[in-house]
């Protein structure tokens, strides 16, 4: 859906902000651009809708070279969300959300329907917020409006530049979860800039990790954690990469590689039943919290076996190098 082909961005004469970056983003995926500040992730993002010019190489969206399109038309077809939401303070929430449909001249009925759909999607009451202004909303609500505005004209591609970066941790986690649910429904192709490895693991189908303008590694979160390609990636993902990867694997993954223990008949042992869809992080937490010594795994309402801390450990050893 989006293809970066040897993309380079040079500022002035020699500062290479982005250096010969190539990768493909499949349709419907969220790809997180990750790296320290100044690594070129935001510049890479902003070249897609040509807020930055491309010095060398090509970017294709849906097979079309972005440089061959009119930049105004291009931007109207790509959703754009930024950290400090950038809502227009002089416009009501409805006018903000409908900014792009107003530019391209949708009729009243179409706009009204779309507004209602989008506000419901992001979990805000359409009528309650219609005539209100951005400053009357909390940071989290403003960011939801920002997301609704970006999706207004139903663009297949969305660019999100640290969209949740300015929110406090509790609200951020909630909006991340909500956004993943929204994505289940809308299936956009999303480029998402973040400097937070945890956010990247949570949100990304794939992660592109940058350093000094170079693409260091482009892989799924579990691959990135399991097999960091070099010292920089290893350091950036953190020493706890084995722990971080836990949430990416489910009990089902574990079963596919290891035989579970037989259920022992001992009624006294402390057991707890979990489903195969439980991720290993939650499973391990139950064991570490001493809520149970043993987890009984249930699939399709049948008990398929039991697991202990040792099993998780052995599984991780196989996966994380």
């Amino acid at each position: 859906m989006i293809k970066f082909d040897q993309v380079t961005k040079v500022y002035g004469d020699k500062v290479k902000a982005v250096d010969n970056v190539s990768f493909d983003v499949p349709e419907g995926n969220i790809v997180v651009f990750l790296g320290p500040s100044g690594c070129g992730k935001t510049t890479t993002l902003r070249m897609v809708n040509r807020l930055e010019t491309i010095t060398d190489g090509k970017i294709f969206v849906n097979g079309t070279d972005v440089n061959s399109l009119n930049e105004i038309e291009l931007r109207r077809k790509i959703g754009y969300v930024i950290q400090h939401n950038g809502l227009f303070p002089n416009m009501t929430i409805e006018d903000n959300v409908m900014a792009v449909p107003n530019l391209i001249g949708w009729d009243r009925k179409k706009k009204a329907d779309r507004y209602k759909y989008l506000m419901d999607l992001v979990g805000l009451n359409p009528d309650e917020y219609r005539k209100r202004y951005p400053h009357e909303l909390s940071g989290g609500q403003q960011q939801r409006v920002g997301i609704a505005r970006a999706m207004a004209a139903d663009p297949p591609v969305m660019l999100m530049d640290e969209p949740f970066g300015a929110l406090d941790p509790v609200i951020r986690t909630r909006i991340q979860n909500e956004f993943l649910q929204i994505q289940q429904e809308v299936k956009k192709t999303i480029l998402f800039v973040s400097h937070d490895i945890d956010e990247a693991i949570k949100m990304g189908d794939a992660i592109a990790i940058f350093q000094n303008g170079k693409l260091m590694q482009y892989d799924s979160p579990s691959e990135l954690l399991a097999h960091p390609k070099n010292e920089f990636v290893r350091e950036f993902v953190g020493k706890d990469r084995a722990l971080k990867s836990l949430s990416l694997h489910t009990v089902e993954d574990l079963i596919s590689e290891r035989m579970l223990r037989k259920l022992d008949g001992n009624e006294n042992s402390n057991k707890k039943t979990i489903s195969v869809e439980t991720n290993l992080r939650d499973a391990l937490s139950i064991l570490l919290n001493q809520e149970a010594d043993q987890l009984v795994v249930q699939a399709n309402n049948k008990l398929v076996g039991a697991m202990k801390i040792d099993d998780v450990e052995a599984y991780l050893h196989q996966h994380i190098k």
Partner: peptide, 27 residues
């Protein structure tokens, strides 16, 4: 005018005139 607002206006696909009339001058 807040650079974020200007950035959003450009990013959403407003041309210079639309940006001035709808966003920058009102603000």
């Amino acid at each position: 005018v807040d650079p974020n607002i200007r950035d959003a206006a450009i990013g959403l696909g407003m041309n210079t005139m639309q940006r001035l009339l709808r966003v920058e001058i009102p603000n």
